[in-house]
Amino acid sequence: MREELIVSGRMNRLIDPGLHIWHWHIPLYLFLGGLAAGILFFAALVTIQGKADKYPAAARLAPFATPILLSIGLLALLLDLNHKLYFWRLYTTIRLESPMSWGAWTLMVVTPLSIVWCALNIRDIFPGWDWKYPVLIRLEKFFKQNLLTISWILLVSSLILGVYTGILFSAFNARPLWNTSILGPLFLTSGLSTGAAAIVLLSRNTAERHYFTRIDLMLIGIEIFLIIHMFMGFLASTQVHIEAAQLFLGGPYTTVFWLFVFSLGLLLPAILEILELRGFSMPHWLAPVLVLFGGLMFRFIMAYAGQASRWLY
């Protein structure tokens, strides 16, 4: 029998007996960031493609949610900090090796962009809107003239944001479950998928809905592929990675993951979407809501399970 004990009574709060430094804040922050990234990505994409009028929910309506989503996300992040008064320290330095720094700065870029984007489209929602001050009117004009450039910036920065939500975890070599390069693409895909789902939810137009349903279906496919790939990767790796995967394969996170994320959040909406595209009639909101729910659960489960996975020595 092997007996491994800490005999000096160590009981550091939030660290012992198991790491629990991150609570709901970080997964919520990552979910909202991914969702906003997805929405903004598609808004930029359809604008660049010149299909903004064809897909109004994607280009104009859905982005209105993003400043709010991002602000709630940032608020969650702020709440998570233990030394809140020093929050501003995030913006006195840029540290490219630190995903946290990266994320903070990306948000610094994306959040104003999302606001600009809303401003540009505000007349579509409130036709009677008036900017009142000449400065603002001139600004609006300037942005409108450079819409394409802004779209490109938005496209790239939203992709960075989406990838970042995964990299934040995958940079942590110390937590074997997170320590896989698949997490970046996986969270990006998941973010795009939730973005597409949000658009489907908001769209009033069948063509647009079907277009994004098709995109979502493809993204779900990629996601499932990446998830399977991730587990295969773990199982083919070191003992600690095998143990990490086992958290989901018989371990404490098995039911929640396979039920909520995989079945309810991926498989079921995929089936519903296929049926929808085949012309079966059903509530339009069901599939996208399930996708959003699955995306949220996924972030939570990965955050919690990741903290439970560790190196043994």
Partner: peptide, 10 residues
């Protein structure tokens, strides 16, 4: 230090 916990997790 802002107490973000990243270093703890890392």
């Amino acid at each position: 230090c802002i107490g973000c916990g990243a270093c703890i997790a890392s």
